[in-house]
Amino acid sequence: MNIGLFIPCYVDALYPQVGVLTYRLLRKLLPESHIDYPLEQTCCGQPMGNAGFQKLSNGLVEKYDKLFSAFDYVVSPSASCAAYVRTFYPLTYRHPCKAASHTMDLVEFLHDVVRPASLPARFPYTVSLHNSCHGVRELGLSSPSEKVVERYSKMRSLLSLVSDIHIVEPERPDECCGFGGMFSIEEPHVSACMGMDKLERHIQTGADFITGPDSSCLMHLQGLAMKSGKQIQFKHIVEILTAF
């Protein structure tokens, strides 16, 4: 299997360990596969699109297709970026593009394609799941609370392979945390209020850690937690799936 790694810009610059652990985990689980990281990649274009300047990101869309269309799968440890590529690129192109349709978030790739029966990971802590909006409602990482469908959570299924972990979820499990990219700059008060509400609900679970498939939501919540002196800690899900 040929796998292309898409490590979005902010993960690249702020959370490189998330990229490193993604690579190591895939390497370990799929020893026969070829994993590559095309060096010309940068950003998926979502920040521009959400700000109303999708047209300025057209070059990125074309580049993405060029860089990644030869891979069987493109895997990204950032649900929101993967969702943007898969949902919005076809709208930009106005035709289906291969690289976009083969792009998967790490959680769904592990859950749906790799399907590990076990993981050599141990994490003896209470962990609260952060179900990020695009992961839930665009990629289907868990059943959206609004819908009348069978309940499932791909994050929970994967994390339950980790030894000694205790998994909890906050009240209002998939209410938005208020990050929203440009939203947090344009609507700083509503964004902070949503974030603090979300943080409180995570803390109320008694969790030691908050985890999720998106470092962006976690960055928002962590920034708020540090500023307001909350003790709860943050880990991207790959950091727990590879913890020992």
């Binding site: 490590i7 690249d12 610059a13 702020l14 490189p16 603090m196 960055m219 962590q222 708020l224 540090m226």
Partner: peptide
């Protein structure tokens, strides 16, 4: 405006790149 309610995230000394 981000700094109103948040501590700033730290850039890594070395990027994934």
């Amino acid at each position: 405006t981000w700094a109103m309610a948040h501590e700033m995230p730290q850039f890594a000394t070395k990027s994934f790149h």
